[in-house]
Amino acid sequence: MNALRSILLRRETGIAVMIVLFVIAVGIAKPRFLSLEYLRIILLLTPLIMIGAMGQMLVLVARHVDLSIGSTQAFAAMVTAMMFKFHPEIPWYLGFLVSIGVGLGLGFVNGALTTLFRLPSIIVTLGTLNLYRGLTFIISDARQVDRQYIPSALKAMSTTSPILGIPWIIFMALGVALLTYWFASHTRVGRQVFALGSNPAAAPLRGIRVNAITLMVFSISGALAGLSGIMYASRWGFVNPSNTGAGFEFQVIAAVVIGGVSINGGVGSVLGVVLGVLLLGCVSAALPLLGIPGTAQSAIYGAVIIVALLIDRSVRQRGIAALAAQRARA
């Protein structure tokens, strides 16, 4: 009985119920939404956000935030695309290394600024958000890298499938999610991220190297943003200095916060984030089907963030109340 209750009270269950209700509601209005074809459309909307969200989750759990991921994505994608353009002889799969490496470097800079000068990450990454975007314009000479320069094999990753008609990039996103799950719950360092976020003051006392962990989560976030950069090139077939990654940080933060990751650090699960990403994907896919104009989209994202914050708060308060009740009983 207690086990059932604890499942029902879990955040993930709440999101899963929300997804089911939403899908049913849209399905009643537009039965086509329930088709396999729409499942494919929804899934194809999510891989980039999913990958960015895994990094952002770790950053938020460590009680930081990374606003620069959209620009990191753009810069990494641009470096990679320009490599394809000017050195077509380089094998396309090396692009992954380049993109991830560049992203890792930018993430490391964020982490270094945050730890070295003990600055709030939100301001640091607000600064690098502009800095990296500007650098993207500079290295590209403000020019888009067109479709013809992106290797066909890379573009094919978004269309061809190893199994069940599900494209490669979706499997990659799932792979990243599984790796993050393994890292977060089955490694010592992963658990230290949670320990650091739930109580930064006590972390050094427990032998946690705060600076190293902070550097690491920002580097991971950057590397994953870099990975999402080359996947952008794969999915959309071009890289543009101003479009690529614009607003990516908002989508990702919305997904992560919906997924139950607490902005106060220390709390979050991969499953919750995956569900959060899926919910966002369902909403994005349903809007055009229902004929809701795109202009409403940003208001919906904003409202979703605030609602998620309120839910997060009420969950936390209930937790505190439960704790207090337990203590009173004891």
């Binding site: 502009n130 800095l131 500007g134 314009f137 500079i138």
Partner: peptide, 14 residues
């Protein structure tokens, strides 16, 4: 270039 301006603003903030 506006790009340079973005860089300068971002750097200034940091």
């Amino acid at each position: 270039l506006p790009a340079t301006q973005l860089c300068v603003l971002g750097l200034l903030l940091i």
